[in-house]
Amino acid sequence: MGNSYGTLFKISTFGESHGKALGVVIDGCPAGLDIDESFIQQELDRRKPGQSKITTQRSEDDIFEILSGVFEGKATGTPICLVIHNKDQKSKDYSHIADKYRPSHADYTYDVKYGIRDYRGGGRSSARETAARVAAGAIAKSFLATKGIKISAYVSQVGDIIAPDYPSLDLSQTESNIVRCPDEQAANQMIELIDSIRKNRDTIGGIVSCVATGVPAGLGEPVFDKLHAELGKAMLSINAVKGFEYGSGFEGVKMKGSEHNDAFYQEEDKVKTKTNYSGGIQGGISNGQDIYFKVAFKPVATIMQDQESIDSQGNPATVSGKGRHDPCVVPRAVPIVEAMAALVLADFYLINQTTKLRD
Protein backbone atom coordinates (compact mmCIF):
# COMPACT_ATOMS: atom_id res chain seq x y z
CA MET A 1 0.00 0.00 0.00
CA GLY A 2 1.05 3.58 -0.60
CA ASN A 3 3.74 2.88 -3.19
CA SER A 4 1.78 4.10 -6.22
CA TYR A 5 0.61 7.52 -7.35
CA GLY A 6 -1.61 8.75 -10.17
CA THR A 7 -4.79 7.80 -12.01
CA LEU A 8 -4.06 7.69 -15.75
CA PHE A 9 -0.36 8.60 -15.64
CA LYS A 10 0.47 6.24 -12.78
CA ILE A 11 3.77 5.35 -11.15
CA SER A 12 4.79 2.65 -8.66
CA THR A 13 8.24 2.91 -7.08
CA PHE A 14 10.24 0.12 -5.48
CA GLY A 15 13.53 -0.44 -3.66
CA GLU A 16 15.39 0.63 -0.53
CA SER A 17 18.31 2.89 0.29
CA HIS A 18 20.76 0.00 0.77
CA GLY A 19 19.06 -2.63 -1.36
CA LYS A 20 20.32 -3.82 -4.72
CA ALA A 21 18.38 -1.24 -6.71
CA LEU A 22 15.62 1.33 -6.85
CA GLY A 23 13.16 1.71 -9.65
CA VAL A 24 9.80 2.75 -10.98
CA VAL A 25 7.06 1.35 -13.20
CA ILE A 26 5.20 4.01 -15.21
CA ASP A 27 1.82 2.99 -16.55
CA GLY A 28 -0.22 5.20 -18.87
CA CYS A 29 2.54 7.09 -20.65
CA PRO A 30 1.10 8.01 -24.07
CA ALA A 31 2.41 5.87 -26.90
CA GLY A 32 4.75 7.60 -29.34
CA LEU A 33 6.24 10.03 -26.80
CA ASP A 34 9.95 10.58 -27.44
CA ILE A 35 11.91 9.18 -24.50
CA ASP A 36 15.11 11.20 -24.20
CA GLU A 37 17.42 9.09 -22.05
CA SER A 38 19.99 11.87 -21.80
CA PHE A 39 17.33 14.15 -20.30
CA ILE A 40 16.32 11.52 -17.76
CA GLN A 41 19.97 11.15 -16.75
CA GLN A 42 20.35 14.92 -16.53
CA GLU A 43 17.44 15.08 -14.10
CA LEU A 44 18.87 12.23 -12.01
CA ASP A 45 22.24 13.99 -11.93
CA ARG A 46 20.57 17.06 -10.41
CA ARG A 47 19.25 14.91 -7.55
CA LYS A 48 22.14 12.49 -7.01
CA PRO A 49 24.35 12.65 -3.90
CA GLY A 50 27.93 13.88 -3.80
CA GLN A 51 27.37 16.99 -5.94
CA SER A 52 29.14 19.53 -3.74
CA LYS A 53 30.44 20.35 -0.27
CA ILE A 54 26.90 21.15 0.91
CA THR A 55 25.41 17.74 0.01
CA THR A 56 25.94 14.20 1.28
CA GLN A 57 29.20 12.64 0.10
CA ARG A 58 27.66 9.27 -0.74
CA SER A 59 28.91 8.54 -4.25
CA GLU A 60 26.22 7.22 -6.56
CA ASP A 61 26.26 7.68 -10.33
CA ASP A 62 22.52 6.97 -10.46
CA ILE A 63 22.87 5.50 -13.92
CA PHE A 64 19.49 4.11 -14.94
CA GLU A 65 18.42 1.29 -17.21
CA ILE A 66 15.12 1.00 -19.08
CA LEU A 67 13.80 -2.56 -18.92
CA SER A 68 10.53 -2.20 -20.81
CA GLY A 69 8.03 0.08 -22.51
CA VAL A 70 10.40 1.88 -24.90
CA PHE A 71 11.23 0.87 -28.47
CA GLU A 72 13.50 2.82 -30.81
CA GLY A 73 13.41 5.82 -28.49
CA LYS A 74 9.63 6.05 -28.18
CA ALA A 75 7.13 5.00 -25.53
CA THR A 76 5.13 1.98 -26.72
CA GLY A 77 2.13 2.67 -24.47
CA THR A 78 2.94 -0.35 -22.29
CA PRO A 79 4.43 -0.10 -18.77
CA ILE A 80 7.84 1.56 -18.68
CA CYS A 81 10.17 0.09 -16.07
CA LEU A 82 13.34 1.94 -15.06
CA VAL A 83 15.90 0.64 -12.58
CA ILE A 84 18.77 2.39 -10.79
CA HIS A 85 21.35 0.13 -9.16
CA ASN A 86 22.86 1.10 -5.81
CA LYS A 87 26.66 0.99 -5.77
CA ASP A 88 27.99 2.89 -2.75
CA GLN A 89 26.06 1.44 0.18
CA LYS A 90 27.93 1.45 3.50
CA SER A 91 25.47 -0.50 5.58
CA LYS A 92 27.93 -0.94 8.45
CA ASP A 93 27.51 2.79 9.13
CA TYR A 94 24.06 1.93 10.47
CA SER A 95 24.75 -1.22 12.53
CA HIS A 96 24.94 0.89 15.70
CA ILE A 97 21.25 1.84 15.40
CA ALA A 98 19.90 -1.62 14.51
CA ASP A 99 17.81 -1.64 17.71
CA LYS A 100 17.69 2.11 18.44
CA TYR A 101 15.19 4.73 17.38
CA ARG A 102 16.73 7.84 15.86
CA PRO A 103 14.95 11.07 16.86
CA SER A 104 12.53 12.39 14.20
CA HIS A 105 13.17 9.42 11.88
CA ALA A 106 10.73 6.74 10.74
CA ASP A 107 12.49 4.02 12.79
CA TYR A 108 9.85 3.74 15.51
CA THR A 109 6.81 4.19 13.26
CA TYR A 110 7.98 1.58 10.73
CA ASP A 111 8.77 -0.82 13.57
CA VAL A 112 5.38 -0.42 15.21
CA LYS A 113 3.52 -0.68 11.88
CA TYR A 114 5.34 -3.63 10.30
CA GLY A 115 7.08 -5.35 13.23
CA ILE A 116 10.29 -5.27 11.21
CA ARG A 117 12.44 -2.50 9.74
CA ASP A 118 15.40 -2.14 7.45
CA TYR A 119 17.70 0.06 9.54
CA ARG A 120 20.27 0.48 6.76
CA GLY A 121 19.90 4.12 5.81
CA GLY A 122 16.22 4.03 6.69
CA GLY A 123 15.37 1.40 4.09
CA ARG A 124 12.20 2.30 2.22
CA SER A 125 11.73 5.49 4.26
CA SER A 126 15.00 6.92 2.92
CA ALA A 127 14.93 9.93 0.60
CA ARG A 128 16.94 7.78 -1.81
CA GLU A 129 13.55 6.46 -2.98
CA THR A 130 12.98 9.83 -4.65
CA ALA A 131 15.49 8.96 -7.37
CA ALA A 132 12.78 6.76 -8.86
CA ARG A 133 10.31 9.66 -8.76
CA VAL A 134 12.75 11.96 -10.52
CA ALA A 135 13.22 9.42 -13.32
CA ALA A 136 9.44 9.14 -13.76
CA GLY A 137 9.07 12.91 -13.46
CA ALA A 138 11.53 13.42 -16.31
CA ILE A 139 9.20 11.47 -18.61
CA ALA A 140 6.20 13.43 -17.32
CA LYS A 141 8.09 16.69 -17.99
CA SER A 142 8.83 15.52 -21.54
CA PHE A 143 5.12 14.88 -22.10
CA LEU A 144 4.14 18.27 -20.65
CA ALA A 145 6.74 20.01 -22.82
CA THR A 146 4.87 18.81 -25.91
CA LYS A 147 1.87 20.74 -24.54
CA GLY A 148 3.85 23.92 -23.85
CA ILE A 149 3.97 23.40 -20.07
CA LYS A 150 7.19 24.12 -18.16
CA ILE A 151 7.97 23.50 -14.50
CA SER A 152 10.75 25.39 -12.71
CA ALA A 153 11.67 25.02 -9.03
CA TYR A 154 14.40 26.76 -7.05
CA VAL A 155 15.60 27.27 -3.49
CA SER A 156 13.89 30.37 -2.13
CA GLN A 157 14.90 30.14 1.52
CA VAL A 158 17.50 28.51 3.77
CA GLY A 159 17.12 29.20 7.48
CA ASP A 160 16.25 32.89 7.71
CA ILE A 161 17.86 33.81 4.36
CA ILE A 162 15.10 34.57 1.83
CA ALA A 163 15.39 35.18 -1.92
CA PRO A 164 13.08 37.66 -3.75
CA ASP A 165 9.74 36.44 -5.11
CA TYR A 166 9.81 34.59 -8.43
CA PRO A 167 8.47 37.35 -10.76
CA SER A 168 11.66 39.35 -10.16
CA LEU A 169 14.01 36.39 -10.68
CA ASP A 170 15.66 34.93 -13.77
CA LEU A 171 14.90 31.27 -13.21
CA SER A 172 17.35 30.28 -15.95
CA GLN A 173 20.05 31.06 -13.36
CA THR A 174 18.87 28.42 -10.89
CA GLU A 175 21.56 25.92 -11.88
CA SER A 176 24.33 28.54 -11.81
CA ASN A 177 25.29 27.75 -8.21
CA ILE A 178 25.40 24.74 -5.88
CA VAL A 179 22.46 25.82 -3.73
CA ARG A 180 20.13 26.28 -6.74
CA CYS A 181 18.97 29.78 -5.89
CA PRO A 182 18.68 32.12 -8.92
CA ASP A 183 19.48 35.22 -6.83
CA GLU A 184 23.28 35.51 -6.58
CA GLN A 185 23.40 37.48 -3.34
CA ALA A 186 20.98 35.20 -1.51
CA ALA A 187 22.70 32.12 -2.96
CA ASN A 188 26.10 33.13 -1.59
CA GLN A 189 24.61 33.75 1.85
CA MET A 190 22.79 30.40 1.77
CA ILE A 191 25.94 28.50 0.80
CA GLU A 192 27.90 30.17 3.59
CA LEU A 193 25.19 29.32 6.13
CA ILE A 194 24.88 25.67 5.06
CA ASP A 195 28.65 25.22 5.13
CA SER A 196 28.90 26.69 8.62
CA ILE A 197 26.05 24.44 9.80
CA ARG A 198 27.83 21.43 8.29
CA LYS A 199 31.07 22.28 10.08
CA ASN A 200 29.14 22.46 13.35
CA ARG A 201 27.86 18.91 12.70
CA ASP A 202 24.28 20.11 12.45
CA THR A 203 21.55 20.64 9.80
CA ILE A 204 19.24 23.41 8.61
CA GLY A 205 15.90 23.54 6.78
CA GLY A 206 14.63 25.60 3.86
CA ILE A 207 11.98 26.22 1.24
CA VAL A 208 11.74 25.19 -2.42
CA SER A 209 9.47 27.35 -4.57
CA CYS A 210 8.00 26.05 -7.82
CA VAL A 211 6.38 27.72 -10.84
CA ALA A 212 4.44 25.99 -13.62
CA THR A 213 3.92 28.08 -16.76
CA GLY A 214 1.86 27.35 -19.85
CA VAL A 215 -0.71 25.33 -17.91
CA PRO A 216 -4.06 25.57 -19.74
CA ALA A 217 -7.25 26.46 -17.92
CA GLY A 218 -9.42 23.52 -16.93
CA LEU A 219 -7.07 21.08 -15.19
CA GLY A 220 -8.35 19.72 -11.89
CA GLU A 221 -11.51 18.13 -10.57
CA PRO A 222 -14.12 19.59 -8.20
CA VAL A 223 -14.54 18.85 -4.49
CA PHE A 224 -12.04 16.16 -3.39
CA ASP A 225 -9.65 16.03 -6.36
CA LYS A 226 -8.84 19.71 -6.61
CA LEU A 227 -5.59 20.51 -8.43
CA HIS A 228 -4.05 22.26 -5.46
CA ALA A 229 -5.10 19.40 -3.17
CA GLU A 230 -3.25 16.90 -5.36
CA LEU A 231 -0.20 19.16 -5.58
CA GLY A 232 -0.26 19.39 -1.79
CA LYS A 233 -0.50 15.62 -1.42
CA ALA A 234 2.33 15.08 -3.90
CA MET A 235 4.62 17.57 -2.16
CA LEU A 236 3.81 16.32 1.34
CA SER A 237 4.71 12.80 0.21
CA ILE A 238 8.34 13.92 -0.26
CA ASN A 239 10.68 13.08 2.60
CA ALA A 240 11.28 15.87 5.15
CA VAL A 241 8.46 18.10 3.85
CA LYS A 242 6.61 19.88 6.65
CA GLY A 243 4.50 22.41 4.81
CA PHE A 244 2.85 23.38 1.50
CA GLU A 245 1.22 26.62 0.41
CA TYR A 246 0.11 27.88 -2.99
CA GLY A 247 -0.71 31.31 -4.30
CA SER A 248 -0.80 33.94 -1.58
CA GLY A 249 -0.72 31.15 1.00
CA PHE A 250 -0.61 32.14 4.65
CA GLU A 251 0.32 35.72 3.78
CA GLY A 252 -3.09 36.09 2.14
CA VAL A 253 -4.79 36.22 5.54
CA LYS A 254 -3.35 39.70 6.04
CA MET A 255 -5.23 41.07 3.02
CA LYS A 256 -8.78 42.27 2.48
CA GLY A 257 -11.00 40.62 -0.10
CA SER A 258 -10.93 43.79 -2.16
CA GLU A 259 -7.14 43.51 -2.28
CA HIS A 260 -6.91 39.76 -2.74
CA ASN A 261 -9.46 39.19 -5.52
CA ASP A 262 -7.93 38.53 -8.96
CA ALA A 263 -9.83 40.67 -11.50
CA PHE A 264 -10.39 39.15 -14.96
CA TYR A 265 -9.69 40.80 -18.29
CA GLN A 266 -9.59 39.71 -21.92
CA GLU A 267 -6.41 39.91 -24.00
CA GLU A 268 -7.02 38.85 -27.60
CA ASP A 269 -8.39 35.29 -27.29
CA LYS A 270 -7.19 34.66 -23.72
CA VAL A 271 -8.79 35.32 -20.36
CA LYS A 272 -6.25 36.61 -17.82
CA THR A 273 -6.21 38.07 -14.32
CA LYS A 274 -4.65 41.38 -13.28
CA THR A 275 -3.15 39.78 -10.17
CA ASN A 276 -2.49 36.14 -9.31
CA TYR A 277 -3.04 35.69 -5.59
CA SER A 278 -4.98 32.54 -6.50
CA GLY A 279 -1.76 30.91 -7.65
CA GLY A 280 -3.25 29.91 -10.98
CA ILE A 281 -5.96 27.76 -9.39
CA GLN A 282 -9.58 28.70 -8.61
CA GLY A 283 -12.21 26.27 -7.40
CA GLY A 284 -9.57 23.56 -7.56
CA ILE A 285 -9.19 24.04 -11.34
CA SER A 286 -6.37 25.78 -13.22
CA ASN A 287 -7.32 29.19 -14.66
CA GLY A 288 -4.47 29.52 -17.18
CA GLN A 289 -2.22 31.76 -15.05
CA ASP A 290 1.11 30.70 -13.57
CA ILE A 291 0.74 28.05 -10.87
CA TYR A 292 3.13 28.75 -8.02
CA PHE A 293 3.65 27.21 -4.61
CA LYS A 294 6.17 26.74 -1.81
CA VAL A 295 7.35 23.56 -0.10
CA ALA A 296 8.95 23.69 3.36
CA PHE A 297 11.62 21.14 4.29
CA LYS A 298 12.65 20.49 7.88
CA PRO A 299 16.29 20.25 8.99
CA VAL A 300 17.65 16.78 8.13
CA ALA A 301 16.96 14.54 11.14
CA THR A 302 20.37 12.84 11.16
CA ILE A 303 22.94 15.07 12.83
CA MET A 304 26.57 14.28 13.60
CA GLN A 305 25.98 14.66 17.34
CA ASP A 306 25.00 12.30 20.15
CA GLN A 307 21.26 12.35 20.90
CA GLU A 308 19.29 10.75 23.70
CA SER A 309 16.64 8.24 22.68
CA ILE A 310 15.45 4.70 23.47
CA ASP A 311 15.97 1.25 21.97
CA SER A 312 13.30 -1.18 20.76
CA GLN A 313 12.91 -2.52 24.31
CA GLY A 314 12.21 0.93 25.73
CA ASN A 315 15.58 1.29 27.39
CA PRO A 316 17.44 4.64 27.37
CA ALA A 317 19.97 4.78 24.55
CA THR A 318 22.37 7.21 22.96
CA VAL A 319 22.20 7.59 19.19
CA SER A 320 25.51 8.63 17.66
CA GLY A 321 25.48 10.38 14.30
CA LYS A 322 27.30 8.39 11.63
CA GLY A 323 27.04 7.90 7.89
CA ARG A 324 26.81 10.46 5.08
CA HIS A 325 23.99 12.97 5.12
CA ASP A 326 22.98 16.35 3.72
CA PRO A 327 23.43 19.34 6.04
CA CYS A 328 20.51 20.88 4.12
CA VAL A 329 18.25 18.91 1.82
CA VAL A 330 16.78 21.71 -0.31
CA PRO A 331 19.43 21.98 -3.07
CA ARG A 332 18.86 18.33 -4.03
CA ALA A 333 15.10 18.61 -3.44
CA VAL A 334 14.61 21.03 -6.36
CA PRO A 335 14.35 18.29 -9.06
CA ILE A 336 12.19 16.18 -6.73
CA VAL A 337 9.64 18.98 -6.36
CA GLU A 338 9.66 19.52 -10.13
CA ALA A 339 9.18 15.78 -10.73
CA MET A 340 6.18 15.49 -8.42
CA ALA A 341 4.59 18.62 -9.91
CA ALA A 342 5.08 17.15 -13.37
CA LEU A 343 3.46 13.86 -12.38
CA VAL A 344 0.41 15.69 -10.99
CA LEU A 345 0.00 17.92 -14.05
CA ALA A 346 0.58 15.10 -16.56
CA ASP A 347 -2.07 13.01 -14.82
CA PHE A 348 -4.60 15.85 -14.74
CA TYR A 349 -3.88 16.72 -18.38
CA LEU A 350 -4.75 13.19 -19.46
CA ILE A 351 -7.81 13.12 -17.18
CA ASN A 352 -8.99 16.38 -18.73
CA GLN A 353 -8.68 14.88 -22.22
CA THR A 354 -10.89 11.94 -21.27
CA THR A 355 -13.42 14.33 -19.67
CA LYS A 356 -13.69 16.30 -22.91
CA LEU A 357 -14.07 13.10 -24.93
CA ARG A 358 -16.78 11.92 -22.54
CA ASP A 359 -18.65 15.22 -22.90
Rank of each mutant, 00 (worst) to 15 (best):
D118V: 08
Y119L: 13
R120F: 12
G121M: 08
G121T: 05
G122K: 03
G122P: 04
G123H: 03
R124W: 07
S125R: 08
S125Q: 04
S125G: 08
S125C: 14
S126E: 05
S126K: 04
R128A: 05
E129M: 14
A132C: 15
R133N: 05
R133C: 07
R133M: 09
V134N: 13
V134Q: 13
V134M: 06
A136I: 00
A136H: 01
G137P: 00
G137A: 03
A138M: 01
I139F: 14
I139C: 14
I139D: 09
I139Q: 09
I139A: 12
A140E: 02
A140V: 03
K141W: 13
K141A: 07
S142R: 03
S142C: 09
F143Q: 07
L144K: 05
A145E: 06
T146K: 15
T146A: 01
T146G: 11
T146R: 01
K147A: 05
K147S: 10
K147Y: 06
G148W: 06
I149Y: 15
I149W: 01
K150F: 10
K150R: 04
K150N: 09
I151L: 10
I151H: 05
S152G: 01
S152W: 11
A153S: 14
Y154N: 12
Y154S: 02
Y154D: 05
V155F: 01
S156H: 02
V158R: 03
V158S: 12
G159M: 05
G159Y: 02
D160Q: 06
D160F: 01
I161H: 09
I161E: 11
A163R: 02
P164H: 14
P164Y: 02
P164N: 07
D165I: 06
D165F: 13
D165R: 15
Y166A: 08
S168L: 12
S168G: 06
S168M: 09
S168T: 06
S168P: 09
L171G: 00
S172M: 12
S172Q: 11
Q173S: 08
E175L: 09
S176I: 14
S176H: 09
N177E: 15
I178Q: 03
I178Y: 13
V179I: 15
V179H: 02
V179S: 04
R180W: 12
R180E: 11
C181Y: 09
C181Q: 10
P182F: 10
D183M: 09
D183C: 02
D183K: 07
E184Q: 13
Q185N: 07
Q185K: 10
Q185T: 02
A186I: 15
A186T: 06
N188F: 08
Q189L: 06
Q189Y: 14
Q189R: 10
M190K: 11
M190G: 10
M190V: 11
M190Y: 15
E192R: 02
E192G: 08
L193N: 04
L193C: 03
I194Q: 11
S196Q: 08
R198L: 08
R198A: 12
N200F: 00
N200Y: 00
R201T: 07
D202R: 00
D202N: 13
T203Q: 00
T203M: 00
I204R: 00
I204N: 00
I204P: 13
G206T: 00
I207N: 02
I207R: 11
I207M: 13
V208R: 06
V208L: 07
